[in-house]
Structures are given as C-alpha cells and as structure tokens.
C-alpha cells in the first residue's frame, strides 16, 4: 500500500540533504508533494488537500529543524500537528439530556452506510451506561428494514417501536416518543431510511421529523471508504438537516479513511464513533490522533518524533 511508502518517499526526498538548520522553501515543497499524493490516495478531498498543504507550507518554511529530526521528519511533524489541529485532539461523547429527560437521537446518511447497524450498536453502549433506549423504525422504504431493526434490537435486548410502512416517519417518531414517555425509556434512537443528499423529497422528510419532534442529536453515518464525494454529502446533510456528530463505519476494512478529514474540514462536526465490524459490539470511540496517522500512514515516524 502507498501507506507505508510515504515514509520511504520522504526519506528519499531528503536523502541528499545535509542542512540541519532551517527548512527551506525547496525542502518543504518537495516534501509536501509527497504528502499531497498520500492524502489523495487516502481519498481526502482534493480541495481540502490543497488548503491543507498550503497551510502546512506557510507554517513550515523557515522553521528550525528540531534536534534529532531530519528535515523530512520535521515536515511530517508539522503535517501531523496541522492534521490533529483540524481533526481536533479530543474525543467527543454523545450529548445526553440531563436528568430524566429523554434524549432523541436521529440517524441519517446515504444508502447502505451502516445506520441500522449503528442504531443497535449505540443502543447497546447506552444500555451499558444504565440507559433505557427505544429503537424506532422510521425506514418505511427499504425491504425488510423493520425486520432488520427488530432482529438487531432483540440481539441487544432493547425495545423496538414500529408502525409498519404506512405512516410517515415524522408521525412514527412522534408516537414513539409518547410511547417512550409512557414506558420509561430515556433514549430514543430513530433509524431512518438511506437517502441521497440531492434527493429533495427525502431530505425534506428528515426536516419534517425535526419539525415534528425535538431531535437532540442528529448523527450522520458515513462509510469510511467514501471517496471525493464525501464533502458534498456531509455539507448537504448539514445544511439541509443539521448534523451534530459523525459516525465513521466499516473502519475494520483497510481503507485509509481520508473522508474523515474531508468531513471534519468541511463541516467542523466531531466524529463520535468508529464502527469496526458487523457484530453489534463493534463500536469504538473515535481518536483523532489515531485517525491522523492512519490517513497519513506515518505511525512509525510519529512515534519517532514523539521521542525527539
């Protein structure tokens, strides 16, 4: 994979360099060319890459090279810092309503992203924290979507609310919250149908849910393998529906997941979880710094820099 080789490439770029003093414009430019390629191969959006590389360049030129580092590593150090800067360095939790109040979470995303699976996974996590979740089948379109949620709910031993496929999702959400109030549920998770960000009617459906009930957290589920289009998707969902946090799915694959960086850069929304498999326990906290080195493929160099 191109991943490992970024280290090699950078070492090559700087092989003939003797200077240990300051990073010259030339040093920085040739190193950043490799960084740019690596980011593009990782599916970071082209425009985001351009902005990012420019920011790094501005910061790096003229910088003193730290003791124990070669110029290539110095550039990488700055690249990594800028990336962590962009991705945020802290983990974020789902914001829950205080006390006994019900927290309403709405899942959203493209078709097949992993919403229904994530719905059940989050319920399991919250249950462990002593919450009593209710899953709500608001996908009235996909064949067997309701059955899928019911089976997953059963596996997690949490209740699933559904009204079949003949009612509007907004109405189902409303009835579900009334049901939750009556039955002592303190978290309601709405599983919605997959939809394209350019499908006006389907996007309006999510708006209608939000107009009908109070949604405290709208979570966008994004497939980690998404390519250049991730920014369009995230931007449209955020503008049209409003997104509070992101879940990155299918991170158990070998994709470098550059979409994470693109989405963060464009929407500024925190990534809450990474989904790591099909089992309903495969949901992990998101660590921005780990993601940064996964995208860059520079884990080894980073640990080197840490020691310097």
């Amino acid at each position: 994979m191109a991943f490992e080789s970024l280290t090699d490439k950078l070492q090559n770029v700087f092989k003939n360099l003797r200077s240990k003093g300051r990073l010259t414009e030339e040093d920085v430019k040739s190193a950043l060319k490799e960084v740019k390629m690596a980011l593009l191969e990782a599916d970071v959006n082209f425009k985001v890459v351009k902005q990012f590389v420019k920011a790094v360049e501005e910061r790096a030129i003229g910088q003193d090279v730290m003791n124990g580092l070669n110029p290539g590593q110095m550039v990488i150090k700055i690249v990594n810092e800028e990336m962590v800067n962009l991705m945020g360095s802290e983990t974020t939790e789902i914001a829950m309503q205080p006390g006994k109040a019900i927290t309403v979470i709405m899942m959203a995303g493209l078709q097949g992203a992993g919403k229904t699976t994530a719905t059940a996974k989050i319920a399991g996590k919250l249950k462990l924290k002593g919450k009593k979740p209710l899953l709500v089948a608001c996908d009235i379109y996909r064949p067997a979507a309701i059955e899928q949620l019911q089976i997953n709910g059963k596996k997690q031993e949490v209740d699933v609310f559904s009204m079949g496929t003949d009612h509007k999702p907004a109405e189902i959400a409303k009835k579900a919250i009334a049901y939750a109030e009556k039955n002592g549920h303190n978290v309601v998770i709405l599983d919605t149908a997959g939809r394209l960000h350019v499908d006006e009617d389907m996007m309006a459906e999510l708006q209608e849910i939000k107009e009908t009930v109070t949604v405290h957290q709208t979570l966008l589920v994004v497939d980690a393998m998404t390519g250049q289009d991730a920014v369009n998707v995230a931007k449209e969902f955020d503008e049209k529906v409003g997104v509070d946090g992101v879940i990155l799915s299918k991170m158990d694959g070998d994709t470098r997941g550059g979409a994470a960086l693109s989405i963060k850069a464009v929407t500024g929304k925190p990534i809450l979880f990474v989904s790591m498999g099909e089992k309903l326990s495969d949901l992990e906290q998101f660590y921005p710094d780990r993601m940064a080195s996964r995208i860059l493929g520079m884990g080894d160099v980073l640990s080197l820099i840490d020691k310097a």
Binding site: E41, D223, T255
Partner: peptide, 11 residues
C-alpha cells in the same frame, strides 16, 4: 461497487 467509494474499490 458503490459508485461513491474512493480508492479502496480498486483493492
């Protein structure tokens, strides 16, 4: 292949 997928589709 999902048309939205990036470079991983090649792998």
């Amino acid at each position: 292949l999902d048309g939205t997928t990036g470079q991983n589709a090649l792998v």
